[in-house]
Nucleic acid binder design. Structure first.
Length: 496
DNA sequence: CGTATTTGACCCGCGC
DNA sequence: GCGCGGGTCAAATACG
């Protein structure tokens, strides 16, 4: 926030440099150049247009060789410099105060849910030889997941100064920020792994609030939020729905209360990608395939996957941007009538309340997109409907600084998942797209979300280009869900 | 032979 | 403390 103000302050100077009529709305007190000449009243004889200034000695015309004038200007210059210093110190203090207040607010907000969260490391509980937060052993977080999400979302403010870094996209930075914020409450995984590859370095349990952040100390600081997930329910006869990514199955378990086994997959599109997904058929209706994503991709995604990521991310955004009502089973349905938490980021939507649900009954918040109530017409889209491929800032796929390379839209048709099936490909993307297509509210909301994000980012990028300073995106509030809700408890697709 | 899948063992958190 | 269940590992196996 503070930094963006500084960026704005630069813009008038840039305009000034364009040799247009001098209109000074704000003054850049922190510019490397001392723009003291701008303080000279426009109507005074000392005022010269920028072009004149370049052609002649600063602020003095050859007709006024007076040493007195020169000394006066030097005095003025000194005064301005002093003022500049004072303002700079004021800004520093304001920034510090803001940061302190923000931290305090966050800690206060979280206290009811996690008393231990802000404790110093040595005050945390020692459980089984590892440091664990109190709530990890007591409260699985059922009542705190929403708060965690909001906290993570708000923690964005603290990360904004770093967001502009080209090697970070917003999601990644936010995930890191959140993970850092969680560092104090998370114990380290003990026991050694025989495997040294990246996958194993990033491997950790999904257990309730038991994120292993051993990655924190990894050289690349590749840390991921494991808090939230995005679950997609869709009707499908295929054993697996293609979502544009490559997955490797690493386990299968029989889950209690469900005759159908649960399969565990991890993303293999890039080494070390921490994204996992679970695939299981619904116990009540085996025709429904439940795919749950978790983690952030650390690589670029093909369009098919990015569309999915965008969709789930938007759903997460919408859920989180509006208040939710808690039902008896712990699920939260989106309430479009209440103001958004981030009104500047997302408008108030009218999302179908039956389509997306935020559940906190499980140890981690799970955004569920129920696509089973929509008619499945693969590839059917409204005439004007098209999801833009997310630009590199888009929170869901993490690129680790690698520019996202758009691939051919047809690429996923060569995906092994397609080739392995004789049936017409049933893709998650198709399903989601069809669902969107048949739900105008969702379509409208999603497009608004995407447009909002893109517009916001474009504006900021423009401002950044003008000011030459780092800017950050305010819209970054996607829960890292599996697929990035944002670290914040983020899904990658949420945190897809 | 390299890669993907299967599957039993293991780890860990949680509830009783 | 113990058992249960979820999640992951890794050796064995299958496949192209």
């Amino acid at each position: 926030m503070i930094s963006s103000r500084a960026g704005e302050a630069n813009e008038p100077v840039e305009n000034f440099m364009d040799a247009k009529p001098v209109v000074i709305k704000e003054f850049d007190f922190f510019s490397a150049n001392d723009n003291c000449e701008l303080l000279i009243p426009k109507g005074s004889p000392e005022f010269r247009h920028q072009d004149d200034k370049v052609a002649s000695p600063p602020l003095l015309t050859p007709k006024e060789p007076s040493n007195i004038n020169l000394s006066m200007l030097r005095v003025k210059l000194e005064q301005v410099r002093d003022e500049n210093r004072n303002l700079r110190s004021l800004l520093d203090r304001a920034t510090k105060n803001y940061t302190a207040l923000h931290d305090h607010l966050l800690s206060v907000m979280q206290k009811p849910a996690d008393v231990n969260h802000s404790l110093p490391k040595d005050e945390r509980q020692e459980v089984g030889g590892s440091t664990l937060p109190a709530r990890q052993s007591k409260d699985p977080g059922t009542s705190t997941s929403i708060l965690d999400i909001n906290e993570a979302l708000h923690s964005e403010d603290k990360t904004q100064e770093r967001l502009a870094s080209p090697e970070n996209n917003n999601m990644e930075v936010m995930s890191k920020e959140m993970d850092h914020s969680m560092t104090d409450q998370i114990g380290r995984k003990h026991g050694s792994s025989n495997n040294d590859d990246d996958v194993d370095h990033t491997t950790h349990r999904w257990g309730a609030l038991g994120q292993n952040l051993e990655e924190e100390n990894r050289p690349d600081q590749q840390v991921f939020c494991k808090k939230a997930r995005v679950s997609i329910r869709a009707r499908s006869d295929a054993p697996l729905m293609s979502d544009g990514c490559q997955w490797r199955k690493y386990g299968q378990k029989m889950a209690k209360g469900n005759p159908c086994p649960r399969a565990y997959y991890r993303c293999t599109m890039a080494t070390g990608c921490p994204v996992r997904k679970q695939v299981q058929r619904c116990a009540e209706d085996v025709s429904i395939l439940i795919t749950t994503y978790e983690g952030n991709h650390n690589h670029s995604l093909p369009p098919a996957a990015t569309v999915m990521a965008s969709t789930t991310s938007a759903a997460v955004n919408m859920l989180l941007s509006g208040s939710t009502t808690t039902s008896s089973n712990g699920s939260h349905k989106y309430n479009p009538s209440n103001p958004s938490l981030f009104p500047s980021m997302l408008p108030n939507y009218a999302i179908s309340p039956t389509m997306a649900t935020l559940s906190t009954s499980s140890p981690y918040p799970t955004i569920t997109l129920d696509l089973t109530h929509t008619t499945h017409h693969p590839m059917q889209r409204p005439p004007n409907f098209s999801l833009p491929s997310p630009p590199t800032f888009f929170p869901l796929p993490l690129h680790n600084g690698v520019p996202q390379q758009q691939q051919q839209l047809t690429e996923h048709h060569h995906h092994p998942l397609y080739m392995s099936s004789n049936k017409p490909p049933t893709t998650l993307v198709d399903t989601v797209t069809a669902a969107i297509a048949t739900d105008r509210n969702f379509t409208t909301a999603l497009m608004a979300a995407v447009s909002s994000i893109m517009d916001s980012t474009q504006n900021k990028n423009n401002a950044s280009n003008i000011s030459g300073q780092d800017t950050c995106s305010d819209e970054m509030a996607v829960v890292p869900v599996a697929p990035q809700l944002p670290d914040q408890s983020c899904t990658t697709f949420a945190t897809n």
